[in-house]
Simulated assay, not measured.
Amino acid sequence: MGILFIFACASFLVPISKGQDINLNITQLTTKNIDFAMDLYRKISSYHDNNIFFSPLCISTAFAILSMGAEGHTRAEILKGLNLDQLERDGQPDLIPELFQQLQVNITHNEDLQLAQGTALFIRLEFDVERAFSDQIKKFFNADIQNIDFAQPKASKTTINDYVKKRTGDRIHEAVSDIDPFTQMILINTIFFQGKWELPFDPSNTQNGRFFVDKYNIVQVPMMFREERFYHASDDSLKVKVLRLPYKGDIAMLILLPNKGVDYTSIDDEINAERFLGWTKQLQITKLEVQLPKFKMDQSYEMHKILPHLGISSAFKNMANFSGLSKEQGLKVSEVLHKAVIEVDEKGTTAAAATVTGITGYSLPPTFIVNRPFFFFIYHEVTNSLLFMGRVINPTKM
């Protein structure tokens, strides 16, 4: 028997609000999730040199739910692969789902922020799910659970895609293209973000400009322009510059731009939670001319081919132990599909404690021109939760 997982994430085009008292364990959760994101990014990037975009929170949430139904080695592998095993405490089996629940409450409390995360479990009509598991995912993740007739693949596909379409603001239309009539269960986790720049770009200032994909390829792309006071920093040891672009609410985009002549691939192995948090702490404000390309991305990943390289493997094999989810025999994960889209324009974005050595406040020249491959991170500033991350090699490519 197989379980099909679909993660549908959409991100659409924020001064820092630190007034909330955040539980230390939530901070530990978000830090672990950043490192998971970087590990996952490195694995994805090893397959190609193209654009990358995904939601680490979307993926980690879905597998945290899956771990609640897993037992023994399967559960241990999932938590270790997510970098969450160190958060476990004896006698507190609900601690990790409680942390995810608290994190979601902290992220979504701001009325200025359009961010919604949802979970749905579509179960075969005669499939018997353990009551304790269904109660828990409803309690901690407010999951929608409904029976569906997978023997009617066309109708079930329509039902699931309509659900994803609705939960992602009509941005993801076909999360699943076909369904095996022998499917037992489909778990879907969606995240939808629509943010408006706190300092929007004036469309009348947008002009075509050159973007240097590499030494031999130059493309023309609409470049947005704004002169304003921005937060920025420089990591001299990594040879990158950092720019913070705030949205209304508690969300920001952090752009990581390698210095001229620096190969972006040399940075891949160096990005981690410690560095990321170091950048956010070292930001300083100054008047700056910013040029940023408009871009769209629509990315899909078969995570069942990627996650085993992060140590999550038994969940996909016949040895999988999901006895906490169901007493049915031979249950394993058959597919893990992750689809994420983003659009960045003048209005905003629409989508799905050690000090870091060498990082100092940096007095940049009057321009910050993003005209070569760069990284970006969309994160919740109060909790430092990484919602989305990506790499733009060619902004003219989806």
Rank of each mutant, 00 (worst) to 15 (best):
N106E: 09
Q146G: 07
F127V: 05
L84T: 10
N106F: 09
I107C: 03
H109V: 01
Q136S: 12
F122Y: 12
I65T: 08
R89E: 13
S55F: 14
L115C: 01
D128L: 13
F100P: 00
F63D: 08
E71M: 04
A62V: 02
T61H: 12
E130V: 15
L66S: 11
G69R: 06
H73S: 06
L87E: 01
E88A: 09
A151H: 00
E126W: 06
H109K: 11
Q152V: 00
G72A: 13
D85P: 03
D90W: 04
L82H: 07
E88R: 11
E111Y: 06
F141N: 06
T119Y: 08
P93G: 01
A120Y: 11
Q102C: 07
H73Q: 07
V105N: 01
Q102R: 09
V105C: 00
T74G: 09
T74K: 03
Q136E: 11
A120I: 04
L95S: 10
S60G: 13
Q104M: 13
V105T: 05
Q146Y: 08
F140T: 13
S55H: 15
L95Y: 08
A64H: 11
I96S: 00
L115D: 01
E71D: 08
Q114H: 10
K80R: 13
I123W: 00
T61E: 11
G69E: 07
I78G: 04
E130Y: 12
Q92T: 03
G69Y: 09
S67T: 05
E88Y: 04
Q102L: 08
Q114I: 04
P93E: 07
A62S: 15
T61Q: 12
D149M: 02
E111G: 05
G81H: 11
S55E: 14
I145L: 01
H109L: 03
D94R: 08
A151S: 02
N110S: 11
L113A: 03
E71A: 13
N110V: 01
V105K: 01
L95T: 02
F133H: 10
N147H: 06
G72L: 05
F150Q: 01
I123Y: 03
A116I: 15
F53V: 14
L84R: 05
D90C: 00
F141Q: 09
Q136N: 13
S134I: 11
E130H: 14
Q101N: 08
E111C: 03
L79P: 07
L121V: 09
F133N: 09
T61K: 13
K80T: 15
R75N: 15
A151K: 11
E71F: 12
I137S: 09
N142V: 10
L84G: 14
D112L: 12
D135F: 15
D112N: 12
E130W: 02
L84V: 10
L66V: 15
E98S: 10
T119C: 13
L99K: 01
M68D: 02
E88P: 04
F54Q: 04
Q114E: 02
R124L: 00
I59P: 15
E126M: 09
N142I: 09
E88W: 07
V105D: 04
F63Q: 08
R89D: 10
N142F: 09
P97N: 06
T74I: 02
R75S: 14
I96Y: 05
F53C: 12
L84W: 09
V129L: 05
P153C: 00
G91M: 04
I145N: 02
P56Q: 12
I107R: 03
C58M: 11
D128V: 15
Q117V: 03
C58N: 15
L57P: 15
Q136L: 10
